[in-house]
Structure formats: structure tokens, C-alpha cells
Amino acid sequence: MFEFTADKCLIELDVNGENKNAIVRPSDLLLDVLRNQFGLTGAKPGCKNGDCGSCTIIMDGWPVKSCLVLAVEAVGHTILTVEGLAGTSPVQKAFVDYHAFQCGYCTSGFLMVCHSLWMMKSDADEEEMEDWLQSNICRCTSYKEIRKAMESVLLQNPQKS
């Protein structure tokens, strides 16, 4: 059984394909560890209550809100942050092409949801896409552009087009 009872402990996380060490408390949140210990500030603190989605990262392929994950829980799982996309995701290009952001604060969270959708459900229909996108909030209301960007990526799926 894995036990973590000390005040602080060294853990190793698989983040963006690299093994990274962090000294954490058992109650430390993954969001805080990513930002404060690894300098990966793409995941943004917003509501810190799992509502807004600005802290979304991808864990084992699926989107999760890193403000609602303990850092210690992430041991043994693969973590992907927006920095890990490194401009390689078609979703990033689509966001630029469709002007799918204004202030940009929510963008990394949206990108991670969209990237995960593209990876896990590239045959998603409109209803499913809407379901996924509803996990995030954009206070500048770029929803229409974000949706168009995501649609354009899904249409690249040979099955869809």
C-alpha cells in the first residue's frame, strides 16, 4: 500500500513526457505543483472549485481539472499540460485560424479539452462536442469561435469528411 503520512514527501510525476520531482504535502493540489514547482503556468487558477476549467490538463488521455486533483494522486499517471502540446496539436492552429480567444486566460484550458476530444473521440458528433466544451467558461464569450475551431479539427477526420 502506498502511504504518505509525512508533512512533506518527494514524488515523481510524468509531465509532458519527462519525469519531474516535486516535494509536496499530501494535500497539495496538482495545479499548484505544476505552476509553483515546475513553472508550468499554462494551467491557470480560476475558480479553484472545478467550475471554470481554466486549469484543465490531460491525465492519461482524458481532461481533468487540476484544481481538483491531489498531486500525489498523479503519481503513476501521464500528465500533459498546454506546454506539452508545443504547437504540435492541430487544435492550436485552429484556434489561431478561427480567432478562438480574446484575453486568452481560458485558452489553455480550452485547448486541453479540445486536444483530448480530438485524441479520444475524433468521431465526436455535434452533441458530444458541445458536451465536452461546456466544461469550460470563457468570460470574453469566444464560444462561437472556439466551437468553429473545434469543428474544423474534427472535420479533418477522414470518417467525418
Binding site: M1, F2, E3, F4, T5, D7, R25, P26, S27, D28, L29, D32, L70, V72
Partner: peptide, 17 residues
């Protein structure tokens, strides 16, 4: 952040839990 300390256990069996 969570302002309190708690211990974390990850058992492998229901009996351990």
C-alpha cells in the same frame, strides 16, 4: 490550496482499505 494537512493512503485491497 488546501489549508490543512491530511495523510494519504492508497491501498491495493478492500481489506487493506
Amino acid at each position: 490550496m488546501i489549508p490543512i494537512h491530511f495523510e494519504y493512503y492508497r491501498p491495493q485491497t478492500v481489506r487493506q482499505a
